[in-house]
């Protein structure tokens, strides 16, 4: 799907919703629904920005059947829908084919909804889980979540005179999802739109559970301008704060390596007000610490992908031989 095709797709998330100007979340949602537009879709959503801004009764932006249950159970809820679909199809009461997508923010996924997601992944339901990760509880005013990055000032880890923002490294949801031995896990962000929609499509076409974690910049609480979500998202990719990669049947595939063009983490942080305090000279060591750890994680990811590349190559060669 190219942007032209995308723009011509019938909308499954209609305008008129109340998300903030410039918010990445509706882009993520619309792109996901467009990537799956050849299927009948049922979507679920966790409580959060997406649900609150799109379904203010008596209006709804959703052009597909949609359910919001509570905060922590988008995955469990969609697992029930998917099970109902299986049972009703088996009994001949449903003839159409359906695909299922669950949406959750990072609060509803990394934190309060982690168990529900884990259970649904382990049970092997056929669904795509999309986490739009804006790195905090943005719907309730920007509190820290386990996805909030180190050093960021949030309303529950504010930069003060003693503490300089969040003091814990963010949770690695990718590794957690991968540990469930599911067929497809990927990390994406709006800054590379073709990559993101490719992953949505792969996710929806996966037979079994799939997880795509999408960095979704928050205008309001990252303290960026409404036209900056995309550029900041690109800086996240280029600084390797948010590497683009997939884990297909347990094997890591790196989708983009900036190589020598890899940007210092400061360039990602600089436009964002949540990091403002770190640019005081006395906090330089915090940025240095973040840079060091980002570099380590990036090198580890590259090593892993390089290792798996050899495996994937030999595997595909033996597959070819097998066919011959």
């Amino acid at each position: 799907m190219n942007p032209k095709e995308y723009s011509e797709k019938e909308r499954a998330l209609y305008s008129g919703h109340s998300s903030c100007a410039g918010c990445a979340m509706p882009v993520v949602t619309r792109s996901a629904l467009a990537s799956a537009s050849e299927y009948n879709i049922v979507a679920s959503a966790a409580t959060g920005c997406l649900e609150v801004t799109t379904t203010i009764y008596p209006t709804s932006s959703w052009g597909v059947p949609w359910i919001h249950n509570t905060f922590e159970n988008a995955a469990a809820t969609i697992s029930g829908v998917e099970s109902a679909y299986k049972a009703l199809s088996r009994k001949g009461k449903i003839n159409k084919k359906y695909k299922f997508i669950a949406f959750g923010g990072d609060g509803g996924t990394y934190d309060i909804g982690l168990q529900s997601l884990s259970g649904a992944l382990e049970r092997g339901h056929n669904f795509l889980y999309i986490c739009y990760d804006n790195e905090g509880y943005m719907n309730t005013g920007g509190q820290r979540s386990s996805a909030s990055p180190f050093g960021a000032s949030t309303t529950t880890s504010p930069a003060g005179t003693v503490h300089k923002g969040k003091e814990q490294w963010r949770k690695d949801l990718m590794k957690i999802a991968v540990a469930h031995n599911i067929p497809y896990v990927a990390q994406a962000t709006i800054g590379n739109w073709p990559d993101m929609t490719m992953k949505f499509k792969k996710g929806i076409e996966t037979n079994g559970p799939a997880v795509v974690v999408v960095l979704s910049p928050c205008i309001l609480l990252w303290h960026i301008k409404p036209d900056e979500a995309n550029t900041v998202s690109r800086l996240a990719i280029d600084s390797c704060f948010w590497p683009l990669y997939e884990v297909i049947n347990g094997r890591y595939v790196l989708n983009y390596d900036p190589g020598k063009r890899k940007k210092p983490i400061e360039e990602f942080m600089k436009p964002q007000g949540r990091y403002k305090h770190l640019f005081k000279p006395e906090n330089r060591h915090i940025i240095d610490f973040i840079q060091k750890r980002i570099d380590e994680e990036w090198e580890e990811l590259k090593r892993r992908a390089e290792f798996d590349k050899a495996y994937i190559k030999s595997n595909s060669e033996s597959e070819k031989q097998g066919r011959n």
Binding site: N69, V81, R123
Partner: peptide, 23 residues
């Protein structure tokens, strides 16, 4: 379709999803 969930919270959550799907 038996759904062996990981908690009662998910038991009811999945049941809600299924019931909303007409089951």
């Amino acid at each position: 379709e038996f759904i062996p969930v990981e908690s009662e919270h998910s038991a009811m959550s999945a049941t809600i999803g299924a019931s909303a799907a007409g089951a």
